[in-house]
Nucleic acid binder design. Structure first.
Lengths: 139, 139
DNA sequence: CTTGACCTTACAGTGACTGGAAGGTTTATG
DNA sequence: CATAAACCTTCCAGTCACTGTAAGGTCAAG
């Protein structure tokens, strides 16, 4: 199967698939007589695995680990779970930080008259040292 | 004031300050006789403004706009507010996506026995096509 | 025979820095 | 006065996960 077809089937960009090969996340694909990459059903499954793992928020290094565990017949499932839970915690932290940022932005916006005058409390807030709610929360 | 001192006072890395100059986010700093960058109190304020804006989640391009508005005496405050609200919405979207990812990860983790056996429902989940809650939500 | 849709490689660019090399300057100490 | 450390300078490369572009080879249809 040519790379374009594989791209369609997996939802990955053809460029992305070549890139995964380049960084050795994937074994080099077999080549047809004309030099085109030729993918097997097995390759397709690996690619789909990667697509889902990336989609679930794992970065390339984590995908590499997951793929190794996936292909390791002597793996222990607790290792897989540990990886997933660690990732979940990381995502939770990111959510918290973004929520703080979101509150901060809404608070900034609420300060502004939003008219045709140049006076803007947002810019003042960014210019000066203030004890905002956020600052207090972080202190 | 030397760049190292400025870095300490603003919380920005000295490298970052040079980088901001390089991409013309900042005017080139005055130079002392020895060639060292020499910062004024005014420069410090601009840097602090940038530090807070970056910290609030604005990217470099947005910081550039904010800085322009900051220095534009004929600005209209509604333009500033529009920028902030747009950013807030973007952040809200990011939070939603991360929450979906978080639920997905916890669901994955809950499937796994977490023992010394190789059987792992997480890897199965990533290997196969499933109608997960998320898939339904997106459909 | 040509057009267009594929495929190939290789290199550059993204964003926002960070690290490192190679060298000049300043300050503190023996 | 020598030297070491802690600064400063520029320039180039690397990060992450791709994406874009150029320059070219291949294939199927009309």
């Amino acid at each position: 199967m040519n790379i374009g077809q594989v791209a369609k089937e997996t939802g990955l960009n053809a460029k992305t698939i070549r890139y995964y090969e380049q960084i050795h996340l994937l074994q080099p694909a077999k080549r047809a007589a004309n030099g085109y990459r030729d993918y097997s059903e097995q390759d397709l499954e690996t690619l789909r695995f990667l697509q889902r793992a990336r989609n679930a928020g794992f970065n390339i290094e984590e995908c590499r680990q997951l793929l190794n565990l996936h292909q390791d017949k002597t793996r222990q499932s607790q290792h897989v779970k540990a990886l997933v839970l660690e990732k979940a915690e990381h995502v939770a932290t990111q959510i918290k930080e973004l929520k703080i940022m979101h509150r901060h932005l809404l608070q900034l916006a609420s300060l502004c008259q939003a008219d045709e005058e140049p006076n803007c409390a947002i810019l003042e807030e960014l210019s000066e040292q203030h004890d905002t709610q956020e600052d207090k929360r972080h202190a």
